[in-house]
Simulated scan of single mutants.
Amino acid sequence: MKKVILSIVGLIFLGLSGWLGYYFYKKSKTDPVVYKTETPFVTNIVKKTVATGSIVPRREVAIKPQVSGIVEELYVDAGQTVKAGQLIAKVRIVPNIVSVNTAETSLETARINFQNSKVELDRQKALYDQKVVADQEYNRFLLDFNLKKEALQAAETNLQLVKEGASKKSGQVSNLVYSPVAGMLLDVPVKVGTSVIERNTFNSGTTIATVADMKSLIFEGLVDESEVGKIKEGMDLNLVIGALEGKIYKATLEYISPKGDTSEGAIKFQVRANMLLDEKDFIRAGYSANADIVLDKKDSVLALKESMLQFKKDSIFVEVETQPQKFEKRLVKTGISDGINIEVVSGISKKDKVKVIEAVGTPKGS
């Protein structure tokens, strides 16, 4: 029994020895690690932050009626260009029964007072012509007659305004809607037959149309709180509009909100930029856009890929090839970075071959 156990142990020992020998043999045949190298290059580096937002007109006006009623006529369509003072719509007034009744009662009262005043004036005039009453007494009745006459005309005008929204005496028509500014109609949300409400102290009123100057557009967007301290008014922006691929629009930052708002769990600040457009450019309001805000820019500088840098405490260094596949560490001084490439101020030259951190194996003899 003892001999059997010794035989088994011996076989296991021989098997392990053979496996270890084979393992080290294969290890000695493994291809050596060959590191790639890259040389520094000259490029332009732009350090920027991104703001997301949309394109909106600088001045956008909502046109509202002066009276309540029903839209009787629409003279324009969305997308049409209008002039200041151009007729937009006509509103048919639906009189309020209580207001009409009150106006009719006031008119009847004013008419009765006027008739009584006229009769009294005629009587006083006859006496005045006979030299029975003095001038002062006659003038008092004449003044009362003129006041009653004006009150009658005012009551007639008030009733006409309540019923029709227009006054024949003044020539003013309140049920006609005009554009207060020149521009393009962005939207006409009402149709013929739509009920509308006038604008007053207690109600903003129904919007008949929205007009804006499409030649003066601005970008409105949001910037994260971590970036807002790096920007200031007057900086240049490059706008990329998602719907208009292949073109970059220039803009100038003109406003940064002094107060941030919570958006998607982060504090963001509103920014506004003036777009610099050519006369031939036509951009629709509401396009979403991304704005690249240029924080810093350098042209024709020596640079490396940022992934090739190595860090140790406060030092930054790279490994430079001195002989084939032999490297030495060199401290470098860096400048601005765009997140991919970084400026190298000193430490290496354009001819140096810098080790790429990622290593790849290549077959022997290749």
Results as ranks from 00 to 15, higher is better:
147 L>P: 05
147 L>C: 03
149 K>L: 12
151 A>I: 12
152 L>A: 04
153 Q>T: 09
154 A>W: 12
154 A>T: 13
156 E>H: 13
157 T>E: 15
157 T>G: 09
158 N>V: 02
159 L>T: 08
159 L>Q: 05
160 Q>R: 06
161 L>P: 10
162 V>R: 11
162 V>W: 14
163 K>Y: 08
163 K>F: 09
164 E>Y: 15
166 A>D: 08
169 K>C: 02
169 K>T: 09
169 K>Y: 14
169 K>H: 10
170 S>G: 04
170 S>R: 04
174 S>E: 13
174 S>A: 07
175 N>T: 05
175 N>C: 04
176 L>H: 10
177 V>M: 05
177 V>S: 07
177 V>Y: 04
179 S>T: 11
182 A>S: 13
183 G>N: 01
183 G>A: 03
185 L>M: 02
189 P>W: 12
189 P>K: 13
190 V>C: 07
191 K>L: 00
191 K>S: 01
192 V>N: 04
197 I>Q: 09
197 I>G: 02
198 E>V: 01
199 R>I: 07
200 N>H: 03
200 N>D: 14
201 T>W: 02
201 T>M: 08
202 F>Y: 10
202 F>D: 11
204 S>G: 09
206 T>F: 07
207 T>E: 15
207 T>K: 13
207 T>S: 12
209 A>V: 11
209 A>P: 14
210 T>P: 02
212 A>S: 13
212 A>Y: 14
213 D>S: 10
213 D>V: 10
217 L>C: 06
218 I>S: 12
218 I>T: 14
218 I>V: 15
219 F>L: 04
219 F>H: 04
219 F>S: 03
221 G>F: 01
223 V>E: 00
223 V>R: 07
223 V>P: 07
225 E>W: 11
225 E>S: 15
226 S>R: 11
227 E>D: 13
227 E>C: 08
230 K>L: 07
230 K>I: 02
231 I>G: 00
231 I>Q: 00
231 I>E: 00
233 E>Y: 00
233 E>W: 00
234 G>I: 03
234 G>A: 09
237 L>R: 05
237 L>D: 01
237 L>C: 03
238 N>F: 06
238 N>Q: 13
239 L>A: 07
239 L>S: 06
242 G>F: 08
242 G>C: 01
242 G>Y: 06
242 G>W: 04
243 A>P: 06
244 L>D: 06
244 L>N: 07
244 L>M: 08
244 L>W: 03
245 E>S: 14
246 G>V: 05
246 G>Y: 06
247 K>L: 06
247 K>C: 03
248 I>R: 10
249 Y>Q: 06
250 K>L: 09
251 A>H: 05
251 A>R: 05
251 A>F: 03
252 T>V: 15
253 L>W: 00
254 E>K: 02
254 E>C: 00
254 E>H: 00
254 E>Y: 00
256 I>L: 00
256 I>H: 00
259 K>R: 10
260 G>E: 04
261 D>V: 14
261 D>N: 05
261 D>R: 02
262 T>R: 05
262 T>K: 07
264 E>S: 11
269 F>V: 03
269 F>N: 01
269 F>Y: 14
269 F>G: 03
270 Q>N: 13
271 V>P: 05
272 R>K: 15
272 R>E: 11
273 A>N: 06
274 N>V: 15
276 L>S: 12
276 L>F: 05
276 L>M: 09
278 D>K: 10
278 D>F: 10
279 E>C: 09
